[in-house]
Amino acid sequence: MNVISVDGLSKSYGKGTTQVNALQDVSFQVNQGEFVAVVGASGSGKSTLLHLLGGLDKPSGGYVHIDGENLYAFKEKERAVFRRRKIGFIFQSYNLIPVLNVEENIQLPLLLDHRQPDKAYINDLIRTLGLHERRKHLPSELSGGQQQRVAIGRALAYRPAIILADEPTGNLDSANGREVIELLKLSVRQYHQTVIIITHDMNIAAEADRVLHLQDGRLQSDTRSLGRGV
């Protein structure tokens, strides 16, 4: 079943001679439960694609359908609500809220929706992430790997259908990076979530069900790993 459907997606910045086409006519579909890696050189349009999939930016052309809903037909506010319910983001630089502790950072998407968090689930999540001892710590008191685990926890808190991760291991050493990927894979298995991950690391890409290769804003190839996928 298609959970993401991208059709003729384009994004350009600037005008006239200074116009940069970050993304040109990209189309693909992603099924539920797929673990997709997006690879490509710097400036190939990976992050732009991820931002457009998450409804953070507006495309210059084309469509993004998530769960059958046209993401860009929503109004600003509706898109924000849609995002917090359906999409979880993980960034290379963690982007945690510095004044909130581990637990609060993880619960934040639920609180934004005026919902009381499911204590058992959150506790389970924190334990799974190995953050139980540090649940009351502020981000500044955590290591990079721990901070990224909090970011993953936050992305999983709402049990979103889709997790978008922008080089989540970019700032981590290989052991911590490995751990993060295992957690993401676990969430695909455990909660049947769809994960799209941007990476430079071909080892990570090799573990994905599918690899989308972008070059100069175009989708160069769409490779399914042998023996994996749906």
Partner: peptide, 15 residues
């Protein structure tokens, strides 16, 4: 920037 981050988490402008 912090407010922007909240936006990525799905906070509405009104929030």
């Amino acid at each position: 920037r912090q407010f922007g981050l909240l936006r990525t988490l799905g906070a509405t402008p009104a929030q």
